[in-house]
Simulated scan of single mutants.
Amino acid sequence: MDFIKNTVDERVSHVYLDSGKSNAINQQMLEELKETIVTAQVDPAIEGLILHGKSGFFSAGLDLIALYAYNEEEVRRFWHTFMDFVRTFVAFDKPAVAAISGHSPAGGCVLAICCDYRVMADGDYIIGLNEVPVGIIVPASIFQLYGFWLGEAAAYRYLLEGKLFKPQEALQAGLVDEVVDARSIRTAAGRQLAKYTQYERNTWRRSKRNMRQSVIDAFEADQEDTIEAILQQWWSPATRSIIKSIIDNLKR
């Protein structure tokens, strides 16, 4: 795999995002992530999963530079892959912990909220869903996933303003569960995963699925109309202009 590194230690799958400096999400990274999640789900030797980023970045979200250059067919394929991946990760019934090692906006935040617990490194970092200011339509299923952790009213307000949180703000809002020194993030994530895996596995996993069922149903519903709306807005001059400005800033 080119963008995902995976090691198994004491029955825990350690999944490392490895896509450039900022772990931006492109088509191949999504495909590799889904394959890794599916493998962890069906492998009886794996009891849980920890998702790791890099120092300073968990994931900067969608790789806008790559996506901006995609043609119509490639963009359509990407969004279908993205929604299918999130559906797969939301339905993953083994324990999953996100070790958020730095910035985690937009798609990076989506990766984190698929997990059962989020440990974030303290520092001058941001996390949250800022799709609306970027010109990307928020799917109802993503809103439901965000609201699962924040409550629907708070998720509604934060999504419409594209709010990004610093670590302590995210902790207060319930978006992350723990803020630690960056040097302690792996230890903290491992400690929490061990709390989950100490229980009888079928009881824990069935309970997780029961409590997530409404969110799972939202992603298992037909996403075609949502994706079509996203694609239509993606190609609009207004959104293209916003993304082009972001890309120009990134390159500078």
Rank of each mutant, 00 (worst) to 15 (best):
R186A: 12
I113G: 03
Q213H: 08
A170K: 01
A106M: 11
L160E: 14
P133H: 04
E161A: 11
Q172N: 09
Q172K: 14
L145A: 12
N210R: 13
G107T: 06
L171P: 00
R186V: 10
A153W: 02
V132W: 10
G123C: 05
Q168G: 02
D181K: 13
Q192W: 09
R201I: 05
Y146P: 00
S214D: 13
D181W: 06
Q213C: 03
C109W: 02
S214W: 04
F165N: 05
R183F: 10
V134Y: 02
L145H: 08
V119D: 04
I126N: 13
G108T: 07
I136R: 13
G162R: 11
V134K: 04
E161Y: 07
P139Q: 08
R183S: 15
A194H: 02
V110R: 00
I113R: 01
G147S: 14
L145G: 11
G162P: 13
L159K: 00
R201E: 13
G190W: 10
Y196W: 13
A140D: 15
G128C: 06
A154Y: 04
G108C: 05
E169F: 00
T197H: 01
D217V: 01
Q144Y: 05
L175R: 02
Y146G: 05
A189S: 15
I185N: 08
G108H: 05
Q192Y: 14
N210F: 06
Q192A: 10
A153M: 09
A182S: 11
A153S: 12
P139G: 07
A194N: 11
A173W: 06
E169P: 00
R201V: 10
G107S: 05
Y196A: 11
M120Y: 04
K195Q: 15
A112W: 05
T197L: 02
L164D: 03
A155P: 10
I113D: 03
Q172M: 12
G151I: 03
C115S: 15
L129Y: 13
E178I: 03
R209A: 09
V176Y: 02
M120I: 09
I127R: 00
L164K: 06
I126Q: 10
A154E: 11
A140W: 05
A194W: 00
Q144M: 15
Q144E: 15
G151S: 10
Y146E: 13
I126T: 11
R186W: 11
G190K: 04
R206C: 10
A155M: 10
A194R: 09
V179S: 09
E178F: 08
R191A: 14
C109D: 07
T197P: 01
A153I: 07
I137C: 02
I185Q: 07
K195S: 10
R212A: 07
R191I: 04
K163Q: 14
G108F: 08
M120K: 07
Y156T: 15
T203Q: 06
V134L: 10
G108P: 04
L145Q: 12
K163P: 08
E178D: 13
R205E: 15
T197K: 01
F165D: 07
D122F: 04
Q172C: 03
S184I: 01
A153E: 15
A112G: 14
T197F: 01
K166N: 03
